[in-house]
């Protein structure tokens, strides 16, 4: 029970945090360029962005990286400020569930664009 709420998986988290950050950066730069090249924005153009399968998959990976990054970051904060193990684990779990839900939701959002 001693290690369950602590920082003993630091290296995995450290690496995952940097890998997700890198992917988000690359995706955002590419997306921003596409966005700027598209000219005046309207519903049709915006929706058209997410029609190609490559964009659906790339966007889903982006949201996945974002959620993983956010969860690890919040975990760092909980480790620093939440010292009651049950509360800390509850927060890990609550945000894990919330973010997993967000991930499934994102699949639905993206794949509803036909």
């Amino acid at each position: 029970m001693r290690h369950v709420g602590g920082a003993h998986r630091g290296l995995d988290m450290w690496l995952l945090q940097r890998a997700s950050a890198l992917y988000m950066f690359v995706f955002l730069v590419v997306f921003l360029l596409l966005f700027l090249m598209a000219g005046p924005m309207n519903f049709e153009t915006w929706r058209g962005f997410f029609v190609p399968m490559a964009m659906k998959v790339g966007s889903l990976l982006f949201v996945m990286a974002l959620l993983v990054h956010a969860w690890i970051g919040l975990r760092e904060i909980f480790i620093d400020y939440v010292h009651f193990l049950v509360v800390r684990l509850g927060l890990y779990l609550a945000f894990g569930a919330l973010y997993l839900g967000c991930l499934v939701w994102t699949v639905d959002i993206l794949w509803s664009v036909k």
Binding site: F43, W46, A70, G73, F95, C102, W105, T106
Partner: peptide, 26 residues
């Protein structure tokens, strides 16, 4: 980082609206 983490679900909601219909996009 904490702010962005907490605001992610609402932003996802805005994203879903923006793709749903021209009215929701507006």
């Amino acid at each position: 980082g904490a702010g962005l983490s907490l605001v992610t679900p609402p932003l996802l909601f805005a994203f879903s609206l923006s793709l749903r219909s021209p009215e929701d996009y507006a």
